[in-house]
Design a protein around this nucleic acid. Sequence first.
DNA 1: GTCTATAGTTGGATAGAC
DNA 2: GTCTATCCAACTATAGAC
Lengths: 208, 208
Amino acid sequence: MSTRLPVAERRAQLVDAALTVAAEEGIAAATVRRVAEEAGVALGVVHYCFDDKDELFTALAARIVDELAAAGSSGLAFDDGPPDLPTALRCAVAALWESIEASAGAQLLTYEITTHALRNRELRGVAVRQYEVSHAAAEQVLTLAAEASGATWTRPVAELAGEALAFVDGVTLRWLVDGDGGAARARLAEFAGYLATQARTRRRKRVR
Amino acid sequence: MSTRLPVAERRAQLVDAALTVAAEEGIAAATVRRVAEEAGVALGVVHYCFDDKDELFTALAARIVDELAAAGSSGLAFDDGPPDLPTALRCAVAALWESIEASAGAQLLTYEITTHALRNRELRGVAVRQYEVSHAAAEQVLTLAAEASGATWTRPVAELAGEALAFVDGVTLRWLVDGDGGAARARLAEFAGYLATQARTRRRKRVR
DNA sequence: GTCTATAGTTGGATAGAC
DNA sequence: GTCTATCCAACTATAGAC
């Protein structure tokens, strides 16, 4: 069974395995042993690739943050010409929620990572980075939506992004608990409506 | 050291100890052993009082939810006569935030309890109850604020409470990560402002 | 009825084999 | 440089003492 592999590839493989286990069964289930088993390697291999369980955890968190950043930068595509701001926001929210609803385990995992990181002084940076990336993604979406619809935010985008992030976070957690996707969507739609009041519309390019 | 105690009192004492440990060091640190140590009793005593670690956890969660319900029902007091709605909301938010900011460990613990409960089928009810109580508390605050200021919500209170709860949840978690109390307060104030637009003012009792 | 002493399991880490 | 075999600590749970 012992297919020798360069350490970098092993690390990637192990982080994959850790993600699989943690998303499905929770962070507590992602023990060094369980991750090794999932990856099909002996226990000690994990400790050869990572100094420490914390280091494996940090790598896992980094990987999730990377995915988050990638998802954020995928952006909105408006093929039918420039929409108005409410429409753009509705699209953004719909796309966001679709991706959330399709990955409950991963969503729950991000909350677990946050709390776990907050409880361990050395891991605090993990939680901070998580939010920096999320915040940047939120700002980007808001900026793109405004640009696409030819509107201008009347308040700093950073503030709006902070509020949006908090709201989405809270709505998602609530949804994980009650499983009510309709209610979650309604809440997000309401917030999108609020956001639309925080911009003023510039003269629009005429659609021919 | 063996002061014999009736089981009900021991249970209460142990839940106290569990709360102390969990709020300070996280739910993962609240092992049966650590709780016994904190309470100053032998390890086995915990297993005599609780069938199971899960039962101790459930008791801990119930105790936190009770406190939450109590805090919610403490209500708002407006000694200076009926305020207008924006003022009432500002007061409610300020009081809420003060209590949150004073108990970071307990706040973080509630998130840990939620995620932990969501990862264990048998404990799902714990998370659901947590949110039912929070939601009820939110509805109560909104209703009281409207009554005190002689206003009427133009949307179902349940919807507004759901949005408020989500937002407060998200803001709190963000604050636990970045420690920026000012930003948190600003976000909450903004939301209070939004809420005020969701009501219409009835004729006001004149203040003499 | 209340508590103590002990068993059995699972986890993180390492010394050393290949 | 990569992996295996082994160690030790910490945890949950229980059998039985008082």
